[in-house]
């Protein structure tokens, strides 16, 4: 989620706000699939790959076209939404769960955008790229765990 905000900031306007608008909507669609128990294969692998890919996009400051960025982010949003929807505890309050899920995701995007806005300074650019590398590294660890599970 932080990587989505970071990448949006790296890409600049309009991606900086289009990605955080698109992500929750597509994630909700993925959440519906998870709640309805529609199986998506290798969800955990998809989440780990999304962290690696998005981290690399930030680390390498890839300036993809907006349509490509939306497609990549939306594809990963489905995995994230599905995982949360499928793991919903029985008896959970519908509104509290949904609002918490969406708002927490949005706030992580805001954190990423806030960090990403430091790219106007050279030290900020370096920090953002390092953060992207860190996210990609964490994703690689998750991927290894997901594949060995």
């Amino acid at each position: 989620m932080v990587a989505v905000g970071l990448w949006g900031a790296v890409l600049g306007s309009p991606a900086i706000w289009v990605l955080p608008v698109a992500f929750p909507l597509v994630m909700a669609f993925g959440g519906v699939l998870g709640i309805a128990a529609v199986a998506i294969p290798h969800v955990e692998v998809g989440i780990a790959v999304s962290a690696i890919m998005l981290g690399l996009m930030v680390a390498l400051a890839v300036r993809a076209p907006l349509a490509v960025a939306i497609t990549v982010v939306s594809a990963f949003a489905i995995f994230h939404g599905h995982a949360h929807g499928a793991e919903l505890p029985r008896g959970a309050d519908a509104i509290a769960f949904s609002a918490g899920f969406v708002v927490a995701t949005g706030l992580l995007h805001v954190c990423g955008i806030g960090l990403g806005l430091t790219t106007r300074w050279s030290a900020g650019r370096l920090a953002v790229r390092l953060a992207g590398a860190g996210i990609a590294g964490a994703g690689a660890i998750f991927l290894r765990a997901a594949l060995s599970a």
Partner: peptide, 8 residues
Amino acid sequence: AIAILVLA
């Protein structure tokens, strides 16, 4: 997104 999830 919240409304869609609550309905689901």
